[in-house]
């Protein structure tokens, strides 16, 4: 599904990704871990298409297409979804209006008519239930005045509504209390199927108790320096990153 080859990217003169190789297949859950500043969020932003990052080398292939050639909205139309580390507040647009616009535009791109309002509301209600979201939420302004947990839940709600093929969760767990974390993780797990894939970017092993990855990668200095199964996450939790990063530094 996703093939990243020797990806090099940065912002202005500062190169952050120094040759990332990663392959994600349908049905898989990958976790990308790593210390602060290792390039985790940059990788997420480059996959989603944020313009301020410049790709200087390598490629990203998504289902046979060159992702780097596509605008952010076109990537979304192909089924790429980024759950933001810091979701943006948009005063003046309600959650329901935002999601309706988003779904309508995605359908338009596929040559489909807008979803009838009745069906849309029904779908919203189902997904709200899945994520334990209370009534009244839909008419609130997008992320405005939301708590950290509410913002992250709103990201997963959008993911549930948009049904992407590839979801990248950028630090969706940071700042969440254990109850919110469980709800979010439970939502992600329920949305998982054999046709989609999830990349979980996280700092903490804790989330991976709830969203169990098939593969764990350690990102350091813009490179994946170690990959393994879920047990690697436990090892990192116990031993920290130092033992791997030192090894990498020595090389």
């Amino acid at each position: 599904m996703l093939k990243i080859k020797d990806l090099k990217a940065g912002i202005e003169d500062n190169q952050i990704l120094n040759g990332i190789n990663l392959e994600v297949n349908t049905g898989e859950v990958h976790a990308i871990m790593g210390p602060n500043g290792s390039g985790k969020s940059t990788l997420a932003a480059v996959i989603a298409g944020k313009d301020e990052y410049e790709v200087v080398g390598g490629s990203i292939d998504f289902e046979g297409e060159d992702l780097l050639e596509l605008a952010p909205e076109e990537r979304a139309h192909k089924g790429v979804f980024l759950s933001f580390q810091y979701p943006v507040e948009i005063p003046g647009i309600s959650v329901s209006n935002f999601i309706k616009t988003s779904i309508t535009e995605q359908r338009k791109a596929k040559g489909m008519k807008p979803m009838p309002t009745k069906d849309l509301l029904k779908m919203m209600r189902e997904k709200m239930e899945l994520l334990n979201i209370k009534n009244g939420y839909l008419s609130r302004n997008m992320n405005e005045g939301f708590s950290g947990g509410e913002k992250k839940r709103n990201e997963i709600f959008q993911m549930a509504m948009l049904e992407p093929r590839l979801s990248i969760l950028d630090e969706t767990d940071s700042g969440l209390d254990i109850d919110a974390l469980r709800i979010v993780a439970n939502g992600v797990n329920k949305l998982k199927c054999k046709d989609n894939a999830t990349v979980v970017i996280t700092h903490y092993q804790r989330l991976l108790d709830y969203i169990v990855p098939d593969f764990v990668h350690v990102l350091y200095n813009g490179r994946i320096i170690k990959s393994g199964g879920k047990e690697l996450a436990h090892e990192l939790d116990q031993k920290g990153y130092d033992w791997i990063t030192k090894e990498a530094d020595n090389q």
């Binding site: 989603a48 298409g49 944020k50 313009d51 952010p72 909205e73 979304a76 139309h77 535009e105 948009l162």
Partner: peptide, 14 residues
């Protein structure tokens, strides 16, 4: 905010 919306599939003009 523009990037946030585009990442949700909303074209730049929209």
């Amino acid at each position: 905010a523009l990037f946030y919306m585009r990442s949700r599939g909303i074209g730049i003009t929209e």
